[in-house]
Amino acid sequence: MASNIKIEWLTKSLAMYNAFVSEKSVAHVRGGRVYELLAIDVLKKNYEVAINKALIKTTNTINYIFQNHKSKINGDICVIDPYLLALGKFNGKKKNIAIVHHIDEDIFNKNLMSKIFYFNLKRNLKKMNAVVVVSEVWKTTLTNIGVNNVKVIYNAFDIKDYEFSYDEKEIFKKKYHLEGIKPVVYIGPNSPGKGISEILEVIDQDKYNLVATGKVDVSNKNVKTFFFSEEEFPLFLACCDVVLCMSTMTEGWNRIAHEALLSKTPVIGSGTGGMLELLENADQIMVKDINELDKHIARSIENTDQYTTAGHKYASKFDLNYFKSSWNALIEELA
């Protein structure tokens, strides 16, 4: 293993940089950024790994575009986020890896600038030595537009972070007033594209103890909205009877669904994008007709043991050992 190789992360995210230098969780680092921080963490045990501070976006977009960032890239192997890749902020003389979690074509087709951005992204993806995606659907999507060297490295988690005792769950439920006879149903993060409004339109709201997460409350008296810490969130998932992942956006995977399965809670989902692979392989319920959602929730609760056993068995395959070996193998391949 060539431990003298310097790996450099190229990102515009100040939040990700701050999380990296502090080595602590940052509340507003979510999704793909969490994946990348974990990749850094497993790689730095064998390599010198850094986030290039010079590429952090601290100015307006126009100024940022015209800054000469290429001369400040020092790594032997560079891992590049899609934003920088579309702007051409990489050095073709280095070994380059792009990470693509998902591509939302609806956003890229909104206006001329977005279309140019998307065109450049696709063009520059073809120049990478490797492109990492988080599900097979995105490998197929990129391969179909002429991108080579696409490798799937799934989201992974520390399995022991999702193991809780009965007492821990009961204390948590009491703290957040989640006790009672009504099933606790998590309807997802209060974010665009996550399907909360669609869920609330079709379910019998009075039947459930409904919970959403986010910094902004859901404007519905039947829904409690919480903003849990990174430590609390897995315990919350373990306290739910069902987790709904009814995304309308095209998902890369779905980290919340994955975490719910590790917490031994059944998942019901729309199956958009990479979530389809996750739910199918975990033998969870996928919704074809959202108007049938109440029936699916009842079925999931009636067969909890079936869904939790199958879900946990599949989700726990992607542990830290898997993630570490996958990323180290990729680096060794390029070195």
Score class of each variant (00 low, 15 high):
Arg255Asn: 12
Glu170Ala: 12
Glu168Ala: 00
Asp161Asn: 15
Glu179Trp: 00
Glu201Thr: 05
Lys215Asn: 15
Thr250Asn: 11
Gly195Asp: 10
Gly195Pro: 10
Ile199Lys: 06
Tyr176Gly: 10
Cys245Asn: 11
Lys182Leu: 12
Leu237Arg: 11
Glu198Phe: 05
Trp253Gln: 03
Glu198Asn: 06
Ile181Lys: 09
Glu168Gln: 15
Glu231Met: 04
Val218Ser: 14
Glu201Leu: 07
Lys174Ile: 02
Lys194Cys: 05
Phe233Ser: 09
Pro189Gln: 14
Pro189His: 11
Glu231Asn: 07
Thr250Lys: 12
Met246Pro: 01
Gln205Thr: 06
Pro183Arg: 11
Lys175Gln: 12
Ile181Val: 03
Leu244Gly: 10
Leu210Gly: 11
Tyr166Asp: 13
Gln205Lys: 15
Leu244Val: 07
Glu232Met: 08
Gln205Ile: 01
Asp167Val: 07
Val242Met: 09
Ser197Thr: 03
Phe227Asn: 15
Ile181Met: 06
Asp158Asn: 01
Ile199Arg: 08
Leu235Ile: 10
Lys194Ser: 00
Ile187His: 11
Leu200Met: 10
Asn209Gln: 15
Gly180Ser: 03
Glu179Ile: 05
Gly180Phe: 01
Ala238Ile: 04
Tyr186Val: 09
Leu200Tyr: 06
Glu232Ile: 02
Ser247Pro: 07
Val243Gln: 05
Val202Ser: 07
Lys182Ala: 08
Pro189Trp: 06
Leu210Pro: 09
Asp217Cys: 03
Tyr176Ala: 10
Asp241Ala: 01
Lys224Leu: 09
Asn220Trp: 14
Leu178Glu: 14
Pro183Glu: 08
Ser197Met: 11
Glu163Trp: 03
Ile171Val: 03
Asp241Thr: 05
Leu200Ser: 09
Val216Arg: 12
Phe227Val: 02
Asp241Glu: 05
Val243Pro: 06
Gly188Met: 06
Ile203Phe: 08
Lys224His: 14
Tyr162Arg: 06
Phe228His: 11
Leu244Arg: 09
Ser229Leu: 03
Leu235Gln: 02
Val216Gln: 14
Asn209Ala: 06
Asp161Glu: 07
Lys221Leu: 11
Lys182Ser: 11
Tyr162Asp: 01
Ile203Lys: 11
Glu198His: 13
Pro234Ile: 00
Ile196Gly: 15
Glu230Ser: 13
Asn220Cys: 15
Asp158Met: 04
Gln205Tyr: 04
Phe164Gln: 10
Tyr208Gly: 14
Phe228Met: 06
Val184Asp: 11
Phe226Gly: 03
Pro192Val: 06
Glu198Trp: 04
Ser197Lys: 13
Glu251Lys: 08
Lys160Gln: 08
Tyr208Pro: 02
Asn222Ala: 15
Val211Lys: 08
Pro183Tyr: 00
Lys182Gln: 12
Glu230Asp: 07
Ala238Met: 08
Gly180Leu: 08
Ile171Glu: 13
Phe157Gly: 08
Phe226Met: 14
Ser165Phe: 02
Gln205His: 11
Tyr186Met: 15
Gly180Ile: 10
Asp217Leu: 13
Glu232His: 02
Ser191Glu: 12
Pro183Ser: 01
Tyr162Ala: 00
Phe226Leu: 12
Lys221Met: 13
Asn220Gln: 14
Lys173Ile: 01
Lys207Gln: 12
Ser165Lys: 02
Phe233Met: 15
Ile181Gly: 02
Val184Tyr: 01
Cys239Gln: 09
